[in-house]
């Protein structure tokens, strides 16, 4: 099966007063209708990956290398017009802060209608009709009235629903979600997660869902990719990664979660902090914090090894894990 999104060996370097090697060889293959949870700590490169996919990085300050394909088309060589058609059309994005995505001076209904008109060339009235249907789809109470509401008149959860609606209005094949539930209250977060899960199935979309929260990733994902210092260090099915984490970083992350940790006992924390990215990493970026580091790790590039069932791990120990079964 051909992946709908295929990213290979993607490098992103920001230049300017300070150089940041944000992505250092990212590979992602997303199948049609699949939900990939992109899990990583702050600064690991999750948002940059999504923005690179939509070519939304500042062109003059960004060095972009590698290949990005959506539906087989090379995104790296698309011109501005083609990119505009792709954004919000084939590929749509939702953010943590809906106020940034929604325009404060237009009503929700008009913004959605506008987007439908732009991408599908239908009349404005047809766009408004679609907006109303969509408000019902994302279960906003009294949808007809909400059509004429401004973003600031809605609660946080409601705005998030409106943004999801805006993103889905043109039936995208790929949805990019950047921590869309992080700013929400717990009881609202779970509602939005389950809504997304349902809509994803209904629309058959492929989704890349960025989060730093393992619990959230478990609720939403079919597959998980764990990111560290601008690389994917482990990927596989949700079950394989959560039940058999094989990269020392993934293991550390899972061990340090508080789920079911015993009160008053010390947590198994990963020591240290993620590396600064002012220089391109050589070898394993996790080695300064890794309890299993050895001389074998001092190689320039560590490949992603497949330890079975498309469960890939970027660690010299992976081969041994494989042999140990």
């Amino acid at each position: 099966m051909n992946p709908i999104v295929e990213i290979s060996d993607l490098h992103v370097r920001f230049k300017g007063e300070r150089t940041v090697h944000a992505l250092n060889g990212v590979d992602i293959a997303l199948a049609q209708g699949e939900v990939l949870g992109l899990l990583g700590e702050s600064g690991s490169g999750k948002s940059v990956t999504l923005r690179a996919l939509l070519r939304m990085l500042p062109p003059r300050r960004t060095d972009l290398k590698g290949s990005i394909r959506v539906e087989g088309r090379d995104v790296m060589t698309l011109d501005e017009d083609a990119l505009e058609r792709m954004r919000g059309g084939t590929v749509s994005m939702i953010f943590q802060e809906p106020m940034l995505a929604l325009d404060p001076v237009y009503t929700i209904g008009d913004q959605i209608a506008e987007s439908v008109v732009k991408h599908e060339g239908v009349s404005f009235a047809a766009g408004r009709q679609r907006a109303l249907e969509m408000l019902e789809t994302v279960r906003i109470p009294s949808p007809r009235r909400r059509l004429d509401a401004y973003p600031h008149e809605m609660s946080g959860g409601m705005r998030q629903r409106a943004m999801i609606e805006l993103a889905l209005a043109c039936k995208p094949k790929v949805l990019l979600a950047d921590e869309p539930t992080t700013a929400l209250d717990a009881t609202v977060q779970i509602q939005i997660l389950l809504l997304l899960r349902e809509l994803q199935r209904e629309f058959g979309m492929a989704v890349i869902f960025v989060t730093h929260d393992i619990g959230v990733a478990v609720e939403i994902s079919d597959r998980i990719a764990v990111m560290y210092a601008g690389r994917i260090v482990e990927s596989g099915t949700l079950r394989d990664v959560v039940k058999h984490p094989s990269h020392p970083y993934t293991r550390g992350l899972l061990a340090s979660t508080l789920h079911g940790a015993h009160r008053g006992t010390r947590l198994q924390a990963i020591p240290g902090a993620p590396p600064r990215l002012d220089q391109a990493p050589v070898g394993c970026s996790f080695s300064p914090r890794c309890s299993q580091v050895s001389s074998a790790c001092a190689v320039e590039t560590i490949p992603l090894s497949d330890i079975g069932n498309d469960h890939r791990v970027r660690c010299v120990l992976a081969e041994r894990v494989l042999q140990a079964g």
Binding site: A186, T187, Q189, I190, L193, L194, D213, I214, G215, V216, V218, E219, L238, R239, V242, K243, T257, H259
Partner: peptide, 13 residues
């Protein structure tokens, strides 16, 4: 409302 950590017991409702 706490997300589950178990892939086999995700929140249903």
């Amino acid at each position: 409302a706490m997300p589950s950590l178990d892939p086999d017991h995700r929140t249903q409702k």
